[in-house]
C-alpha cells in the first residue's frame, strides 16, 4: 500500500478532470476524462484495491469511454463548432465557478484539516468482496442490476425507429 502513489494518481486525475470539464472540444474532453479515469485506476491499485482498480480500468476506462467514443465520433468537431462552443462558454462559467467555489474552502479546511483516525491497512481480498456483494449486500446488488436493466430498456426505447404516426407527433 503506497499512499504517496495514490495521492499522486488522484492529483493527476483531479487536474485532468478540471481540464476535461473546461475544454471546448468534446474529443479533448473525452481524452482527458479517460486520463483521469486511468490515473484513478492506478490510484486504486496503489491502495491495494486490486479488484476495484481492475474494473475501473476495464469497464470504466474501457467500456464506458468506448461508448462515449462512439458518440463523439458522430459529432461535428470542426473549427466552427469549436468557436460556437467557446462562445457558449465565454460568460457561462462565472456563476457556476462562484457557487461551486463556496464549497471549496469548507472542503479543504473541513475534510483536509481534521486528522482521520488510525487506519488498519490490511489488504482486502476480491473473494471477500464477492461474499459481501452476494451476501449481506445482496439487496443493493439486486437494486443496481435492476437499475442496469431499466437503463437497458430505456435505451432500447429511446433508440427505436419512430413509426410514421409517432414521427408525426414528434416532428424532429
Amino acid at each position: 500500500m503506497s499512499w504517496g502513489l495514490a495521492i499522486w494518481a488522484a492529483t493527476v486525475a483531479f487536474g485532468a478532470a478540471i481540464l476535461a470539464v473546461t475544454r471546448p472540444s468534446a474529443v479533448h474532453a473525452l481524452l482527458l476524462l479517460l486520463a483521469a479515469l486511468i490515473s484513478l485506476g492506478v490510484g486504486f491499485f496503489a491502495m491495494a484495491a486490486n479488484f476495484a482498480g481492475a474494473i475501473q480500468l476495464l469497464i470504466y476506462a474501457g467500456a464506458v469511454v468506448a461508448v462515449f467514443v462512439f458518440v463523439v465520433m458522430t459529432i461535428d468537431a470542426g473549427d466552427e463548432a469549436m468557436a460556437a462552443e467557446r462562445e457558449l462558454l465565454r460568460h457561462a462559467w462565472r456563476w457556476p465557478a462562484l457557487i461551486v467555489g463556496l464549497s471549496v474552502v469548507p472542503v479543504i479546511f473541513g475534510i483536509g484539516g481534521g486528522a482521520m483516525g488510525e487506519g488498519d491497512p490490511a489488504p482486502a481480498l476480491a473473494s471477500d468482496l464477492g461474499l459481501l456483494m452476494f451476501g449481506d449486500w445482496s439487496a443493493a446488488t439486486e437494486l443496481i442490476t435492476l437499475l442496469l436493466i431499466a437503463g437497458m430498456l430505456g435505451v432500447r426505447h429511446l433508440g427505436r425507429k419512430l413509426g410514421p404516426r409517432l414521427r408525426e407527433r414528434n416532428p424532429e
Binding site: A6, A10, T22, P96, S103, I111, G112, G114
Partner: peptide, 20 residues
C-alpha cells in the same frame, strides 16, 4: 485527508462542468 479532499475536488469539478 488528502485523498478525500481530492475526491471532493473531483466532485466539485464535475459539478462545475454540469453547471457551466
Amino acid at each position: 485527508n488528502i485523498l478525500l479532499v481530492l475526491s471532493a475536488g473531483l466532485f466539485l469539478a464535475g459539478l462545475f462542468g454540469v453547471a457551466a
